[in-house]
Structure formats: structure tokens, C-alpha cells
Amino acid sequence: MKELVIISGKGGTGKTSITASFAALAGNAVLADCDVDAADLHLLLKPEIKNQHEFICGREAIINQEQCTNCGLCNSLCRFDAIKVSDGKVIIDPYSCEGCGVCVHFCPAQAIEFPERLCGEWYESNTRYGKMIHAKLAPAAENSGKLVAQVRQAARESAEKQSGKLILVDGPPGIGCPVIASITGAIAILVISEPTVSGEHDLERVLKLAKHFDVPAMVCVNKWDINPEAAERIEQKAVACGAKAVGRIPYDETFTQSQIRGQLVVDFPASIAAQDISKLWNEISQMI
């Protein structure tokens, strides 16, 4: 079983539109949306949810005001600025609390409770292109990396059940915990870049990350004609960082227009973007 993870470093370069088109071109891959705090793949693939699961992850410290003696020890122990003393009362800010439990353990009055925290939901679904695993992180919740790990695990199990060979993963932006959780152990990543100073800078960081975790990388420059020299430079940089430049896609309104109609770019086969995405897919499927 092979996992191809589509990421970008910089957000908004076209990851999700391209992943959705790949889903159609691959036929019967398992699809995993690992951009769990701003998941969009479902808007294009319109999954029919078969099973829904709660994502319970970690715990949260809650003060029992009746037992609290306002000694302030918890405040001095907390490394995350989550505990404040206001009007002589100790208050824990749930959005700063990382659930480490240090205050719970050391509270001399045992006044801090430590219940499990519901951090979101994840779903097993069907789409017209294959099974899909996706998730929704609760607003302002923690642990997106663990939810990503959950989505990938479920996608692998789903692929195994149907002897599927390929998992297409729509990854999150950035280089932090959810990205690391998305790419480790994958057969390859495809980085969708754009020919801007930001795109170039972010590509370099994400390729260093791939190298750090020993994942082979491919690079595609989307909207290359916005700045052809920068596109050229990015491809050279990609090669210098040990990645392979696998294709270019021009700036094409088809990306926006297909999205607005709830369709895929490849649903408009006459568009240059659709043709270039097909070429890109042929290139990639030979490589993996």
C-alpha cells in the first residue's frame, strides 16, 4: 500500500483542487483529508458518511471552586499561562490548557479535575471515486496532529480491507505537528508550490522537513505563468533540495469556477489546467 501526500508549505496553492482531480484520475484510491482544521476536500468529493466517530484526545484541567483554597501553586507550576488568579479566584483558561496534568497532580487540595476532552469527529465515507476518511476538529481544539494520525490509520485500514494499493492524502499547510503527522512513513510527498517569494521560501522549508523525515519529494508549480522566472527558480531549488520537478500548471480560472460549481478541474477536460493535471498525474503514477 502506498500513501501519496499532497502538501504545500504555503496555504492556498491549489492542493485540495489537485488532490480531488487526482482522486478522479486514479479511480478507486482511498482518500484521506488530513487538513483537519480546515478540511475542504469533502466540498468537492461530496462524501456520503457511513460511520461517524468521536475523537476524544487528551484531558483538560478544571478547577472545583468549592475545594480550591486559592493557594496559587497551580498558577506557579503552569508552563502554558493557562492559570490566572482574578478577584481572588483561580481560573483555568481551557484554550491555553495543554492538558499536561501537572497542576492536577500537585494541587494540595485535590481541587482540580481532569476529564477527557472531546476534540472533534472523524468519518468513514463513500465517494464516487472511492472510500474517504475525513475529520473535523472542534473549534479552537488541540491535538490536530493526533487527529491526523487517526485519519491516516483509518485510511490504511480501509485500503487494506479492499486490497487497495493507493491512498491519496490531502495534507495541511505549514511544517509543524499536523504536517509531520501527515508525511512520516509515506511513499512520497507532492509539494504544490506557486511562483512567489513566499511560495519559494515555504517550499524550501517543507523540502527540508521531507529530508529530515526521509520522505521522497516531488514538486509541481501551480500558476507558473504569474511569474515564469520565479517558477524556473523554484524548480531549480527543488532539484537542489533533492526533489523532482514533475510538472507545471498555469493560472486558470477553471480552478475557481469548477470549485464554485462543486466540480473538479478535470471535469472540464478542455481547460489547460485539466490537461496539465492529467499529465502531472501520469508522471507521478509512473514514479510511485
Binding site: 475542504d40 488541540e142 470549485q259
Partner: peptide
Amino acid sequence: CPPGTSCPMVTAVRDADFVLLVTEPTPF
């Protein structure tokens, strides 16, 4: 701020007096 809605975004917006949310007129 960083994109998304989880811990990095929350940490960045936390003590703001006002938040400007930048978006684009598309389904995403």
C-alpha cells in the same frame, strides 16, 4: 497569524483586541 483553527492560530489570536478574517469568495 498562522492558518487553520487549532492551537497555533488560537495562540496567535488569543489576546487580540480585534480579529480581521481574510477570506476569498469561493466555497473553500
